[in-house]
């Protein structure tokens, strides 16, 4: 188990290094930052001096080295617009995004898994077809439009919920969260439901398929032969097996939730790092874009690591290795 953790940690560090190189090269390829920093009237000599003072006369691999060293110290440059360290801007908005993505994942899980289980247990019924059609619709609806329709219905039409923004936050272990109060939940409900829709469809399909598959397995037949109750067969024997793919996929999809939060945050004016990214792209605030990308990549790598470990925890065949 410890060897597994160490191996995964090493792999994660490697991926992070490669991605930082890619991001660096992409930014390096976009253009010469000197043009932005130096007065257009400056002569050749001045340009060379500024270039040297910023270390931009060094070959690209040396510059990458400086970049890595600075990144290691947590320095990804200053925002052109806000005049603050880019990394701080992104990190400040991260709790809002993680709060939104976590809420969406929970909604998708609690609405998708039981329904998928229910449909998977009656594979050829009308209700199973209905669930299949519903998940197909969920796949097809574009997130941003669903968000707008929900705003129209629940905020503008019925006036039950706010049209956007985040509720008041309170620090929880130093992290500002909005889910401590009713107002926070009222703000969170619509954006989280919007973001959850696609993953709900996915989990619905996955659970229904995995349940159908599990019910055909010999261990279910043997469990029936031992006179176990249907509740125990489904709730323990089947659920423990299908939980493995469900947890794996939910974990991996959490990254995609963070990415798609860009859209949801824009629709609902949710002050997360996705909205920051869109705003920064609009005003060409490059250091913030780079900081967002690197932090997101690091987040993805961390998520993958956690999923791998969870997987090992859930599946004894992975945890103990196969002896047979």
């Amino acid at each position: 188990m410890i060897a597994l953790v160490l191996r995964r940690l090493l792999q994660s560090a490697l991926v992070l290094l490669v991605m930082s190189l890619l991001v660096f090269v992409a930014v390096y390829a976009i253009g010469d930052p000197i043009a932005l920093l130096v007065d257009p009237q400056a002569d050749q000599h001045d340009v060379a001096r500024v270039r040297a003072s910023l270390g931009l006369d060094a070959p690209w691999w040396a510059q990458y080295g400086y970049f890595l060293v600075a990144a290691g110290r947590g320095d990804l440059g200053q925002s052109f617009i806000h005049g603050e360290p880019a990394i701080r801007l992104v990190l400040e908005r991260m709790p809002a995004t993680l709060e939104l993505a976590s809420a969406a994942l929970l909604i998708a899980l609690f609405a998708g898994v039981p329904l998928g289980l229910w449909a998977g247990l009656r594979p050829n019924s009308i209700s199973a077809r209905l669930v299949n059609g519903l998940s197909l619709l969920g796949f097809s609806l574009p997130t941003f439009w669903v968000g707008m329709m929900l705003i129209m219905l629940f905020a503008v039409g019925l006036g039950w919920l706010p049209t956007g923004g985040r509720g008041p936050t309170e620090p929880v272990f130093g992290v500002p969260l909005s889910i401590t109060g009713i107002a926070g939940w009222r703000h969170l409900l619509l954006p989280a439901a919007t973001l959850a829709l696609f993953k709900w469809s996915l989990l619905l399909r996955l659970t229904a398929g995995a349940t159908r598959e599990a019910m055909r397995q010999d261990y279910v037949r043997f469990a029936r032969a031992r006179g176990l109750s249907p509740a125990r067969i489904v709730g323990v024997h089947v659920l423990k097996n299908i939980l493995i793919p469900i947890v794996t996929v939910s974990g991996l999809e959490f990254g995609s939730l963070i990415a798609f939060a860009v859209v949801t945050e824009t629709v609902f004016a949710w002050p997360g790092m996705g909205k920051l990214l869109i705003d920064s792209i609009a005003v060409l605030d490059r250091p913030v874009v780079v900081a967002y990308l690197l932090i997101t990549v690091a987040l993805f790598v961390a998520i993958n690591l956690v999923v791998d470990l969870l997987y090992a925890l859930l599946d004894p065949r992975v945890r103990f290795g196969s002896t047979a």
Binding site: A26, G255, A259, V262, V263, L277, L293, F300
Partner: peptide, 10 residues
């Protein structure tokens, strides 16, 4: 392993 939307966005 990276969402398509992020790549297109960048």
């Amino acid at each position: 392993s990276f969402p398509a939307i992020l790549l297109a966005l960048v």
